[in-house]
Simulated scan of single mutants.
Amino acid sequence: MHAWLCENPVGVDALTWKELPTPQPGPGQVLVEIKAASLNFPDLLIVQNKYQMKPELPFVPGSEYAGVVQAVGDGVKHLKPGQRVACLSGTGGFGTHTLAPAALCMPLPDAFTDVDAAAFTMIYATSWHALMDRAQLRAGETVLVLGAAGGVGTAAIQIAKAAGARVIAAASTDEKCALCRSLGADATINYSTHPLPGGFRDAIKEATGGKGPDVIYDPVGGDFAEPAFRSIAWRGRYLVVGFASGPIPALPLNLTLLKGASLVGVFWGDFARREPEANTRMMGELAKWYVEGRIKPVIDRAMPMSELKAAYARMGSRGVMGKLVLVN
């Protein structure tokens, strides 16, 4: 097998493509031949030693992938060789093969393509857990999605619309706003033409008729958080999903009092670990929605696995719409 190896987590340039022994699965593991792997923001942080999870060196990055089971270890009953699966295991995806925990592998319906399967779990699980579980989104409510043209943002638009909500999508270019409208967004806000903080707040006010959004889905953080939260509706729920812009914002807590609003943390990974049965039900529902055509990952582009460093560079340029996927 071959894989991109991180021997020193000082950044993308230190990754090397190496031939490694093909491992055999131990108890509870499966050997997966990787067909496609998606690039997520944590995949950048982990090779820079900036992610909360710090794997033992050396390691193969690539948190999310899809492929075919080649062999199963002792105790694995629900998977068999030749079965197609998707997995989000944190590492191992940027190569030709990997050992995956069987418990984290989702058997794939025939309708799934490899590329869609590799781009599916993180964005839809995060967005469903945020909107449907943590925010208890109801039909007829208004959702403001920040960073709406990214992976989790595009998933949030689709899930919110499928749940009967009105969606306002905020993105940084006219092209990204057009993508959001094509996914069903009812209104869009271009950050560049409605600058922070006043222009952005005015645009939110106009888009909601002065009421403010009932739910704010924020994977961006930074300077967007406070003006967005100041715009929230009475009894609104502000979903803290991530901090793609870099800085972690500090919000004046009196705003929660004035709006009767809630700050709600979203940590899907720990939800899956702590509440595995609820997570399994959620993933089953999401797979059903995919088969029914209600949701589908937005793929920015699929690139050969050999072009991983170029994919990282494209992600860093902030030009990605949806997900980048590497294919073998």
Rank of each mutant, 00 (worst) to 15 (best):
residue 92 G to L: 06
residue 174 D to C: 01
residue 75 G to P: 04
residue 195 P to I: 13
residue 105 C to Y: 11
residue 83 Q to G: 00
residue 205 K to V: 07
residue 188 T to H: 00
residue 78 H to T: 15
residue 72 V to K: 10
residue 195 P to R: 12
residue 104 L to D: 06
residue 100 A to H: 11
residue 184 G to V: 07
residue 125 A to Q: 15
residue 207 A to S: 11
residue 211 K to S: 11
residue 99 L to C: 02
residue 202 D to P: 00
residue 80 K to H: 09
residue 182 S to Q: 15
residue 181 R to S: 13
residue 99 L to I: 14
residue 86 A to R: 13
residue 179 L to P: 01
residue 118 A to Y: 12
residue 178 A to C: 01
residue 208 T to F: 05
residue 174 D to F: 02
residue 130 A to I: 10
residue 100 A to Q: 13
residue 204 I to A: 04
residue 152 V to C: 07
residue 147 G to I: 12
residue 91 T to I: 15
residue 139 A to N: 07
residue 105 C to K: 08
residue 207 A to H: 01
residue 67 G to T: 09
residue 186 D to Q: 08
residue 123 I to S: 13
residue 139 A to W: 12
residue 85 V to T: 05
residue 200 F to Q: 14
residue 133 D to A: 00
residue 163 A to F: 05
residue 169 A to E: 13
residue 106 M to E: 14
residue 167 V to W: 06
residue 146 L to P: 12
residue 148 A to D: 12
residue 162 A to C: 03
residue 167 V to H: 02
residue 129 H to F: 14
residue 108 L to S: 06
residue 144 L to G: 02
residue 166 R to W: 01
residue 83 Q to P: 00
residue 66 A to H: 11
residue 161 K to Y: 07
residue 210 G to T: 15
residue 207 A to F: 02
residue 174 D to Q: 14
residue 101 P to N: 10
residue 119 A to E: 09
residue 128 W to Q: 05
residue 165 A to R: 07
residue 149 A to T: 13
residue 198 G to I: 06
residue 116 D to E: 12
residue 143 V to R: 03
residue 141 E to I: 07
residue 212 G to D: 15
residue 98 T to D: 02
residue 76 V to E: 05
residue 130 A to D: 08
residue 190 N to K: 04
residue 188 T to W: 00
residue 128 W to A: 13
residue 208 T to V: 09
residue 170 A to E: 06
residue 207 A to W: 05
residue 79 L to P: 04
residue 179 L to C: 02
residue 115 V to M: 00
residue 100 A to V: 14
residue 197 P to S: 10
residue 196 L to Q: 07
residue 199 G to T: 09
residue 100 A to F: 12
residue 145 V to D: 09
residue 78 H to E: 15
residue 207 A to D: 04
residue 192 S to V: 09
residue 104 L to V: 00
residue 91 T to A: 01
residue 198 G to D: 15
